[in-house]
Design a protein around this nucleic acid. Structure first.
Length: 285
DNA sequence: AAGCCGTGCAACCGCACATGA
DNA sequence: ATCATGTGCGGTTGCACGGCT
């Protein structure tokens, strides 16, 4: 026996909202505030499901919502957070004032996924397709010549652009949010200089751009972050967590830099296969 | 002008979780 | 501890719209 429906679906209106219905919601909320949404249709004089009213309010009518296009900074923020925590749209949306989870989800599905795909990057893992094919070939114990062919055949239609990690996300409570995602007290900062990496503490709550996870993290977030650290340690550039000065050079330079960027990724694929010990050392937590 | 197709986005669905009796 | 109910969330659908043939 399933859960009873929240309303009589046969007798409530569905589909697009009219301006009159919007006005009723706005008038009701301005007068009574947000309370029990199941009572809103009745009290506001709407023949709608309460859930539908809540959705209309949170996704469209709320006065603090932005209705303009996403900025490049917001786009970078979405890409980075998706790479780190996956499709947790509500969390990502909380980093973007005035945006809803529905906004972010739609933007991802209609724009960013395609953009990454055209750059030769798998939107799910944020890894280059070449790397995925390489790993797949390794798992299947395929001859190396097949792997090489796979690499050659998966060159992106558009040269990959490095993603410049936003140094500071719009909200100040990022650390708390990420701590919630992967558990508190598990962070340390990592900073790159010319010679080596310095492990340091996070200096401010909004400086989470370089946070790495030490232990007891959800598999997806942990593996993603660890992989990037591995690549950095191996002297290989990676998407998203590229140190800012290097990223800036890529941003400012010509297409030849894009070529070398692609080459560095392909090189990292080969390094990972030839020197598996580079990976092993970082998994001993 | 009409039909087709791709795109963007609002809205819906169903499940999971939170909360209070 | 259990159940009922409200809320949050991610995935998916459906429709309006514009461009193209």
């Amino acid at each position: 026996m399933g859960r009873p429906p929240c309303c009589d679906k046969a007798n409530v209106k569905r589909g697009p909202w009219t301006p009159e219905e919007d006005a009723k919601i706005l008038a009701y909320v301005s007068r009574h505030g947000i309370g029990n949404w199941t009572l809103v249709p009745q009290k506001a004089g709407l023949n709608r499901c309460g859930k539908s009213c809540r959705l209309r309010w949170t996704n469209y009518l709320r006065p603090d919502l932005k209705h303009d296009n996403f900025t490049p900074e917001e786009e970078e923020c979405i890409l980075e957070l998706h790479r780190t925590i996956g499709s947790r749209w509500s969390w990502i949306a909380k980093q973007l004032p005035g945006r809803t989870d529905n906004d972010v989800k739609n933007y991802w599905n209609t724009k960013l996924k395609k953009k990454l795909f055209n750059m030769g990057i798998d939107p799910v893992t944020h890894k280059p397709f070449s790397q995925i094919f390489t790993e797949f070939g390794k798992l299947g114990n395929l001859p190396s010549t097949i792997n090489q062919n796979a690499l050659l055949n998966t060159e992106p239609r558009i040269k990959p652009e490095p993603l410049l990690l936003p140094q500071k996300f719009p909200n100040a409570n990022n650390l708390q949010i990420i701590e919630h995602m992967v558990g508190p007290f598990l962070f340390r900062g990592i900073e790159q200089n010319e010679e080596d990496y310095k492990i340091r503490g996070i200096s401010s709550p909004d400086d989470i751009s370089s946070a790495v996870v030490q232990e007891e993290t959800p598999l997806h977030a942990a593996t993603s972050i660890i992989e990037n650290e591995v690549n950095d340690k191996a002297g290989v550039s990676c998407y998203g967590l590229k140190p800012e000065p290097e990223a800036m050079r890529y941003m400012e330079s010509s297409s030849s830099a894009a070529d070398s960027f692609l080459e560095s990724i392909l090189a990292s694929d080969r390094d990972a296969l030839e020197f598996p010990e580079l990976l092993d050392g970082f998994c001993d937590y």
